[in-house]
Computed example of a mutant assay.
Amino acid sequence: MPATVLVVDDDVAIRRLLRNTLERAGYAVVEAMNAQAALAAAGACDAVLLDLGLPDRDGLSLIPLLRRAGDTVVLVVSAREATAEKVAALDLGADDYVTKPFDSDELLARLRVALRHRGGAVPGGIVRRGDLAIDLDRRTVTRAGAEVHLTRKEHDVLALLARHIGRVLTHEKILAAAWTGEEEARVEYLRIVIRNLRQKLEAPAPIGSVIANELGVGYRLRAGDPRQM
Rank of each mutant, 00 (worst) to 15 (best):
Pro2Cys: 05
Thr4Met: 14
Val5Ser: 06
Val5Pro: 07
Leu6Thr: 10
Val7Met: 08
Asp9Ser: 13
Asp10Glu: 15
Asp10Arg: 11
Asp10Asn: 15
Val12Met: 09
Ile14Ser: 12
Arg16Gly: 13
Leu18Ala: 13
Arg19His: 03
Thr21Tyr: 02
Ala28Trp: 03
Asn34Val: 09
Ala41Asn: 06
Ala44Val: 14
Ala44Thr: 15
Leu50Phe: 02
Asp56Leu: 08
Arg57His: 02
Leu60Thr: 08
Ile63Phe: 07
Val76Asp: 10
Val77Cys: 06
Lys86Arg: 15
Leu92Ala: 14
Gly93Thr: 12
Gly93Trp: 05
Val98Met: 01
Lys100Ile: 09
Asp103Gln: 05
Leu108Val: 03
Arg112Asp: 10
Ala114Trp: 08
Arg116Ile: 01
Ala121Lys: 07
Arg129Thr: 04
Arg129Gln: 10
Leu132Met: 02
Ile134Tyr: 01
Ile134Thr: 00
Ile134Asp: 01
Arg138Pro: 02
Arg139Ala: 13
Arg139Leu: 12
Gly145Phe: 14
Val148Arg: 13
Leu150Ser: 07
Leu150His: 06
Lys153Asn: 08
Leu169His: 05
Glu172Arg: 14
Ala177Val: 00
Trp179Phe: 15
Gly181Phe: 03
Tyr189Lys: 13
Arg191Met: 10
Arg191Ser: 08
Val193Phe: 04
Ile194Arg: 11
Ile194Thr: 09
Arg195Lys: 12
Asn196His: 14
Leu201Met: 11
Glu202His: 12
Ala205Thr: 11
Ser209His: 13
Tyr219Pro: 04
Arg222Leu: 12
Asp225Trp: 09
Gln228Cys: 06
